[in-house]
């Protein structure tokens, strides 16, 4: 934690009390020996969109699964630290209880139920609810209003729909649980830029209109930082940098390593500083 450079005046721990999710210094170990997260802390404010950035293998998925408690099914374990949702410790909850209390994950690679139709997929998302058929039906229409394409494909088996449709289906399925917060893992993966933009637009609308908070893991730094308000950059299981999205976009290192822009022509002692950082980052 001490290594992390913060681009805001205040440290993340002292973020406003209105944070819906706070992850405090967690450590995750797979198979009892593989240490993957080495003390990750992050905050998601109520109604916020926060991006979790970093290269492949940095630990983004592991962080999300630690929160949603899907780690245990992969022989992973949170061995240190704590996770609070709405001020309540949730480390020990089952995924079922967690979904009931309002946190749901959209997994990397979408994971739709291939042999179920799109509509059946959406309905499985409402499994944990007990507020009656009418309410579920109303939410189905709500999901269709955000993703009209899903309505057209409602009777198709999910396995035969396109990648973009599957991503919509996965997000729609998560919405059907009436979540307060969605953990969205790499929504842009394998999608054409136009589709990616569409998905992120919908995320923004869901955030504004339905009040859903988002923690989104992305390798597509450029898009993520345009839609998120705050970002954390992970490297080998540590947060190495965090800050407001605009500030991160301006940051030279982020530009060079994550946005593919290099600050050309600047030759001063700052390059030396960058070089040192680079060594730590790679």
């Amino acid at each position: 934690m001490s290594e992390a450079a913060s681009l805001t005046s205040e440290a993340p721990q002292s973020a406003p009390a209105a944070s819906i999710l706070s992850v405090n210094n967690i450590e995750v170990i797979y198979d009892h020996v593989i240490l993957v997260l080495k003390g990750v802390s992050l905050e998601v404010p109520q109604g916020g969109i926060v991006a979790l950035l970093g290269a492949n293998g940095a630990g983004k998925t592991t962080t999300l699964k630690a929160i949603s408690n899907l780690l245990r099914a992969e022989r992973g374990e949170v061995t240190k630290g704590s996770i609070e949702f709405e001020g309540r410790r949730v480390d020990a909850l089952t995924p079922n209880d967690l979904v009931k209390s309002g946190v749901v994950q959209v997994m990397e690679g979408r994971h739709c139920f291939e042999h179920l139709t799109i509509e059946e997929n959406l309905l499985t998302g409402a499994y944990t609810r007990s507020d009656g058929r009418g309410a579920v039906q109303a939410d189905l229409e709500m999901v269709y209003s955000y993703f009209p394409r899903l309505k057209e494909r409602r009777g198709s088996m999910a396995g035969y729909t396109s990648g973009g449709e599957q991503q919509m289906c996965a997000i729609g399925r998560a919405l059907m649980s009436r979540p307060k917060m969605i953990l969205l893992d790499e929504p842009s993966m394998g999608l054409a830029p136009q589709l990616v933009e569409g998905i992120f637009e919908t995320v923004k609308r869901l955030n504004e209109a339905e009040g859903v908070s988002f923690l989104l893991a992305e390798q597509n730094t450029n898009v993520a930082l345009r839609y998120a308000r705050y970002g954390y950059i992970l490297e080998s299981g540590r947060v190495v940098l965090d800050g407001d999205a605009e500030k991160l976009r301006e940051n030279e290192d982020v530009k060079e390593f994550y946005l593919g822009l290099s600050a050309s022509g600047r030759k001063s002692y700052r390059d030396v500083k960058h070089y040192k950082r680079r060594k730590r980052w790679l």
Binding site: S68, V99, V104, F113, E114, E120, T124, A174
Partner: peptide, 18 residues
């Protein structure tokens, strides 16, 4: 429906709270 979902994808079924 939940049974069929589990048959298709355990992980995904867990993730939606089944």
């Amino acid at each position: 429906r939940a049974l069929r979902a589990v048959a298709d994808d355990h992980q995904a079924a867990l993730s939606v709270g089944i």
